[in-house]
Amino acid sequence: MRTELKINGKSHVVDVEPRKSLLDCLREDLRLVGAHAGCEHGVCGACTVIVDGTPVRSCLMLAVQAEGSEVVTIEGIAPAPGELSILQDAFCETHGMQCGFCTPGMILAAHALLRDNQEPTREEIVEAISGNICRCTGYDQIIEAVALAARRMRGRNAPDQVSA
């Protein structure tokens, strides 16, 4: 089925079976492999992408259902090759990961949180990432990364502070 997808601001036309998930379409047809298949039944969150501004599970959405939606994947987050967003850099600063498998989904979930909430509490950060399972870290350094990024992003916007 011919489907037009808007991924990271760019239009792509793919021909997919209706049964193909958005996750498999991103990974196989568009070779955007930053979204990972962890459980394929909507529990682990490793496949998280942002659809129309909100983090969703790309394994729980058919590719054909994404037609016309704005999809942002982890590949659309870094500002330029070799550069990191403030949030990505914060994950590196606190080592908010180990194996890196859940990391793209975790970052997208946190990215969406910080867009709406510049001063999240620990509870709000926990809630925002609660749909993303990390088996390595116990979440401590992930929560720390999101809080650090929020602080740095606030700093960047404050007129009397040097940008982070």
Partner: peptide, 19 residues
């Protein structure tokens, strides 16, 4: 110090077998 591996993971550029 930072962990050298982390940079590739935060941008989704790990090299996992399914990739």
């Amino acid at each position: 110090r930072r962990v050298l591996e982390d940079r590739r993971f935060v941008v989704g550029k790990g090299n996992f077998v399914a990739d």
